[in-house]
Structures are given as structure tokens and as C-alpha cells.
Computed example of a mutant assay.
Amino acid sequence: MIFVNLFVTFFFIGLFGFGGGYGMLSLIQGEVVHHWHWMTTSEFTDIVAISQMTPGPIGINSATYCGFTAVHNAGYGYSMSVVGSALATFALMLPSIILMILISRLFIKYMNTQAVQSVFAGLRPAVVGLLGAATLLLMTRENFSSPDENPWQFWISVALFAATFIGTKILKINPIRMILYSAVAGLVLLY
């Protein structure tokens, strides 16, 4: 039964996940953590971190790791977890494949019409909202702690967040380098 739920869940995420992988993160978290309880928030945060570091789109990588983790946490073995991983990935990509096949010819023919331009103008704010929601959903106690529980971890986490933002946005440091710098700083300062 988990395989059917996994397929349907990721199919609908792929169908309604506008804005790319980062826009899908809040949808994925809402389904796999809060709705189905296939994993904890901490596990999902680890999945997002791994998905960002591995090659490929973050949405596809997240689906792959979530499928594996969901089936593994349900008590199935390694081989069935790999099937769950492949199933979630395929289900996430399937709506895009179907839609691209169906609308590619129509889009080329009508892409300069006012109706199509209006649709894209309406989707832009929704994409920004989904990206903002993904950011806010990752700002949890598991990631930052709290000033009451562990002030050292909280302020170091906030400092790393600010340094990474400034490094990538203002100083234009390569994001991969910033990930590596943050990983080293996290290991040195938090443990």
C-alpha cells in the first residue's frame, strides 16, 4: 500500500509543483513529513542537504531519497527501498513528461498570445511564494535550535546562515564552496 501512496503523492507533487525543485520542497515536506509521517523533520532536512550536494535537480534528488527513506522506515528491506526510490522519482517526473508531450506543439503555436503571457504573469508570484515557503519551512528548531535550549548552537547557526547569504549574494562566492565552508564550520563549531 505504501507504494501506491508513494506514487500518487509524488505524481501530484510533480503535477502541482511549479517553480522547480525548490518550489516543490514545501509540498514534499508537507506530504512526507506532516501528512503521511513517513519520516521526521530532521530526516527530511538531511534529505534536502544531501539533495543539494548531489548532482542533478533538487526536486528529483529529494524524491529519490524520500522514496527510499519512506519505504525503509516502513520496515521493508534494502531492495524494496530502492524500488520506492525509483517509484517516487518516476512519479515526480511523469506529469512533466505527459504535459510536455501534450502541450509542446500548442505552446510553440500560441506562446506569443496574450492569454499565455497572462498565465505566466500569474504563475510568477506563486513561484516566489513557494520558494519563500520552502525557506521558512527549513527554519526549524532542528536546524537552528533555539536561544532558550542551546544558545551556542542557535547563534552559530544564525551566523552561518548570514555568512552564507552574504557570501553567495554579495561576495559572489561559488555556492558549492559555501556549502563546503559551512560544512567545515558546522563540524568545527557545533560539535
Rank of each mutant, 00 (worst) to 15 (best):
M1K: 08
F3K: 05
L6V: 14
G14Y: 00
G14F: 01
G17K: 01
G20M: 11
Y22P: 09
G23V: 00
M24W: 00
S26Y: 09
Q29F: 04
G30S: 05
W38D: 02
T40I: 08
T41D: 14
T41A: 13
E43I: 04
T45F: 04
A49W: 03
T54N: 09
T54F: 02
P55T: 00
P57C: 00
G59D: 03
S62G: 04
A70S: 13
H72T: 02
H72P: 12
H72D: 12
N73L: 13
G75K: 14
G77A: 10
Y78V: 07
S79V: 15
V82K: 15
G84Q: 11
T89K: 12
T89N: 09
M93I: 09
P95W: 03
S96M: 04
I97E: 03
I98A: 15
L99T: 05
M100L: 12
M100E: 08
L102G: 11
I103G: 08
Y110H: 10
Q114I: 06
A115E: 12
G122D: 11
P125R: 04
L130I: 07
L130Y: 10
G132S: 06
A134D: 04
A134R: 01
L137T: 06
L138A: 08
M139W: 03
N143W: 04
S146Y: 07
E149T: 07
W152E: 14
Q153G: 03
F154Y: 15
W155L: 06
A159R: 14
A159S: 14
A163C: 15
L171R: 09
Y181L: 05
V188M: 07
